[in-house]
């Protein structure tokens, strides 16, 4: 009875059921597979989170995003008045989150690689790129750098999936891949 003291004073030496020990071995093997999968994917997988990040004051990040936008804006999205920026392939690309928009809109080339820098100017936000479904936590004061290679063309949305106040559900961004 599990609600009574063990029937033997020395229970450590009780024999173990055969199926119990078999199950423990099987389960342990599976646990080790699960564990090994993560380093394996770091080496052979193509989708990893980078370990590159910096402590970046919001105003510094904003200045960099502005500079990039100034240099490479190709047009302005009419309804929201957000610039659409087309940075050169391989370059450093900045996108900032703030209440309640992702700024600027990006236009990228398919199968080209970019260094995407992400940060927030105010509260925490969630970078959720849809419909490909990549989800990252974005914090104020920290800059994440991910190297991405869009391999599908089309129009992608960035939904904010970290609660950031009453306008949270209006916070959308765009990436066009041509």
């Amino acid at each position: 009875m599990s609600i009574l003291p063990p029937s033997q004073k020395i229970w450590w030496k009780e024999p173990i059921h055969g199926i119990e020990i078999t199950w423990i071995i099987i389960a342990l093997i599976w646990c080790l597979v699960l564990f090994a999968w993560m380093p394996y994917w770091h080496i052979y997988g193509k989708q990893n989170l980078s370990n590159e990040s910096y402590k970046t004051p919001p105003e510094v990040f904003e200045a960099k995003a502005n500079a990039m936008a100034k240099a490479h804006t190709v047009r302005t999205e009419p309804k929201s008045n957000i610039p659409v920026v087309k940075p050169p392939a391989g370059s450093d690309v900045y996108m900032l989150g703030r209440l309640w928009q992702w700024w600027p809109i990006l236009e990228l080339e398919k199968n080209k690689t970019y260094r995407l820098h992400l940060s927030s100017l105010d509260w925490q936000h969630g970078f959720s790129l849809q419909p490909t479904n990549i989800n990252l936590q974005i914090l104020p004061g920290y800059e994440t750098v991910v190297t991405i290679t869009p391999d599908q063309s089309g129009e992608f949305a960035i939904v904010c999936n970290e609660y950031c106040g009453v306008g949270h559900h209006t916070m959308l961004g765009k990436i066009f891949v041509k």
């Binding site: 990040s53 910096y54 402590k55 970046t56 004051p57 510094v60 990040f61 920290y142």
Partner: peptide
Amino acid sequence: WGIMEIISIPAVK
């Protein structure tokens, strides 16, 4: 260990 990691994040250049 976590705090050490956070403290050692470099400042942006």
